[in-house]
């Protein structure tokens, strides 16, 4: 479409025409991100709880998650294909792996930030170690853990767009459709719609996290 003016009327017609498909892809995009982040949350928060007070374990977990995040997403998705094939499964696995680092790191940071005096008081009052973790330490670390989930979600929304190339679900499908139609009338419409929808999904999920954080954080922990 290079060199040509852009007609707003045409994009409205395009959007109206495709509204159902756009909604469906947007829904898929959100669902795949949520599933992946939830899986990563279980693994990441769990790992964080296990290693937060063990320097070696902590270093190892963060190093592994760091290496995963360094791997280019195209490479990660490609590596999944021989064993997991195409579609939802490799997408969810890849997104979960990428989401790990922010979640595990924030869990560790959050748990470590809880003042030793508070932990000592909790133990001295007769709380069992499990009770100290779940009634005191995690609630106090909660805002930091949620921030990890929030960052992970933003990350996953973007990477999910690339996953469309391996037949993953979501709005990335439109972006790649735009590419495959290079030169055709609707190419830019597809790519633009896909990109903007992904941005909107990211912003909406971010707002959702701000809301969740407000609702679930004790008033005593807010600034």
């Amino acid at each position: 479409m290079s060199g040509k003016g852009y007609d707003l009327g045409l994009i409205w017609a395009f959007l109206a025409n495709k509204s159902e498909e756009i909604l469906e892809l947007t829904g898929q995009h959100i669902v795949v991100v949520i599933i992946s982040v939830l899986i990563a949350a279980v693994m990441g928060v769990g790992a964080g709880i296990l290693v937060w007070n063990k320097p070696t374990g902590r270093g190892f977990v963060i190093a592994v998650a760091g290496v995963i995040l360094t791997i280019p997403s195209m490479a990660m998705l490609a590596l999944m294909i021989p064993s997991l094939g195409l579609g939802w499964v490799p997408t969810v696995v890849a997104l979960s792996l990428y989401s790990l680092l922010p979640i595990v790191r924030n869990t560790i940071v959050g748990l470590r930030e809880v003042s030793p005096a508070v932990l000592e008081s909790a133990a001295a009052m007769g709380m069992t170690p499990l009770k100290v973790m779940f009634a005191v330490q995690i609630p106090i670390a909660w805002p930091v853990i949620l921030t990890g989930l929030r960052v992970a979600t933003q990350l996953a929304v973007g990477i999910a767009a690339i996953a469309a190339y391996v037949a993953g679900p979501g709005m990335g499908t439109y972006i790649f459709k735009g590419l495959s139609m290079l030169g055709a009338k609707n190419a830019l419409n597809f790519a633009l719609t896909g990109t903007i929808c992904v941005i909107l999904i990211a912003l909406v999920l971010d707002a959702f996290f701000i809301l969740i954080t407000r609702i679930t954080t004790s008033r005593g922990l807010r600034d």
Partner: peptide, 21 residues
């Protein structure tokens, strides 16, 4: 903040559609 929410693949493909590959 907007940039953070923008997918890399979207930027690249949009650039290609507008400025050529």
């Amino acid at each position: 903040n907007m940039g953070q929410a923008t997918p890399a693949v979207g930027v690249i493909i949009l650039f290609a559609l507008i400025f050529g590959i």
